[in-house]
Amino acid sequence: MFIKALPYLFTGAVYTIWITAIAVSLGVIIGVFMGMARISGNIILRGFARVYIDCIRGTPLLVQILIIYIGLPNLLHILTGNQMPINVYVAGIAACGLNSGAYVAEIVRAGIQSIARGQTEAARSLGMTQAQTMRYIILPQAIKRVIPPLGNEFIAMLKDTSLLSVIGVEELTRKGQLFIAVTYAPFPVYLGILLIYLAMTLSISQLVAYAERRLAVSDRSN
């Protein structure tokens, strides 16, 4: 049963990887801006980023998924009187992306702040603008420090996408449940699911370690 389930589960795993990749990419885009906003001199930007990050990190992803997929159409129905269902994949990716954005924002903020103040001062003292300093001096250095925690975020998000099974996104966990419903063989199938998640997360940590080594080399090569 375990062997029979595998091909079926793999199709789910492909969805899991895609959803994670898109959600984390979305998260990185949101996170870079939110992370910079979080330490910006502008009090409104800073406040906005802070509220966003605190709200997302202070609430469960499962509830965030439910409020976007089920709550939001309901709200729109109340406001407009029209039924506007959201595509389940769009809702799932949006929820995960927004969630990831908050965590990435904190990673980006820490990365930027870990670059010594002297770097900013040196760049600014040469007449470079704040934006130039960010782009040419701070971010290139911050990226290297941010890669390991971003890898962790990717792994965490990959595991968390299993929550999307609740709203019916046919990712790995949901595929497994569907298979169990037909075959009544929960143990081998859940074991299969577990092992596939493990294989994926271990592969990602290998990739991150490799990327880290490559970046470390580029630091020193002449």
Partner: peptide, 20 residues
Amino acid sequence: INKLRAEVGMVFQHFNLFPH
């Protein structure tokens, strides 16, 4: 201020070269 700073060079105690 950026224009002014371009005319005023600064050397720091801890060098602050760009390591990358």
